[in-house]
Design a protein around this nucleic acid. Sequence first.
RNA 1: GGAGAGGUGGCCGAGUGGCCGAAGGCAGCAGUUUGCUAAACUGCCGUAGGGGGAAACUUCUACCGAGGGUUCAAAUCCCUCCCUCUCCGCCA
Length: 428
Amino acid sequence: MYDLRTLRDNLDPIREQLGPRGADVPWDKLRTLIEQRRTLANQVEQLRHELKKGSDEVATLKREKQPADASMAAMKAIGERIKTIEDELRAVEEPLTDLNLRIPNLPHASVPVGKDVSSNTETRRWGSPPTLTAPAKNHSDLGEALGILDFDRAAKITGARFAVLTGSGARLERALINYMLDRHTTQHGYREVLPPFLVNRSSMTATGQLPKFEEDLFRLRDEDYFLIPTAEVPVTNLHRDETLNENALPIRYAAYTPCFRREAGSYGKDTKGLIRLHQFNKVELVALSKPEQSYEELERLTGHAEAILQGLGLHYRVVTLCTGDMGFSAAKTYDIEVWLPSQNHYREISSCSNFEGFQARRASIRYKGAVEKKGAKTEFVHTLNGSGLAVGRTVVAILENYQQPDGSVLIPEVLRPYMGGLAQIAKS
RNA sequence: GGAGAGGUGGCCGAGUGGCCGAAGGCAGCAGUUUGCUAAACUGCCGUAGGGGGAAACUUCUACCGAGGGUUCAAAUCCCUCCCUCUCCGCCA
């Protein structure tokens, strides 16, 4: 969503900067609606001014016990005109707001231009792939053989794209959640949040999931509530409709939540295993910062997500997404991709984005200076978030990268305290 | 789920049709007084959008939970929805 005045004055530059991202925006219609809205709103304002003056006259006349019928009749006519024009205004504003909510964010100048994944750029790598003495097995075969993953029963009790973890598998998932949260809260300065997993339509609109991507979400039948696709939604919305004090920034939250996604349009992709599920666990990092510090904050936040992989000893690379591959709300995104031996390539395990003021405008999250300065304007904060990390995919990476020739899996050192000292998952 | 009460500015709280963007108080800011602190006194003190001005500022419009309606005129009357509180029931 854009400020209407900004949009009106910069429609062509915005269109140009969005490039292919703005391909499905009906620009001419948008331009027409903006102009119509302006004209109608001006008319309504003027008429209301007349009405207000006229009504005051009526009040004066009545107080002085003088006849007011003529004024009343005139004002009635104006009132009717206002009503007519207001209806027209509504008929313009509704589609205008809807269109405005469907325009994606502008990419930051440092983002590589391109139309798909082929234009993403690798920014850095850490570590190296493990040396396996036997051919790499994939995580679902390993997990099923170890008796810690059960996809058949998950399909029975729910359906495709769900998983059951049992025994050391369930404990590994829980250990990872705790390890991630502990590091982010005690070493990286985040405040832990445990939010609702269902949110309302306003929250989904504020962070950009709605109105454009409703088919990706699970929605309750009897209430207008949605299952969260990421903790980004409830956590960013903590401060919706608030004006924060400048001193409070930056605000950093870490939240564990399950995430629910319809995965519409991904039929046939990653059908096996834990990679793409309708429900998965994630520890999410969310930050609110002053605009001038948000890119510094993005680097920091990405580093915090990387620190988890480093702690676990997992090889990864960081990729800067190009303009065509970024999500709707993002101004800049780094994907962190972990090495998966069975696939012999990197898979996304975290996505860290700066949304600049895009979500903050939709959510009305602003800040103002601590000391009231003359001309100090209340401004929108910048919002950021990143996975730190997707827990299920971390389990995948551990199973595959730490697999042994006998089918057992070593537990990374840092997790052992969270696993009751367990050093290895073997078939029991 | 049933019954009742209520949502007004940063906070408390008055306002049941017009002179109300809204009394009064608290907090905040500026000043006077004061040996210091405190107190007292005076003034200022909401947000958003449009017009004018280099700016200080000025003017118009909107906003009293949200959205509709009645009326010349709505914080105030009517309808729908949301939220909070109290009691009862149920429940982890």
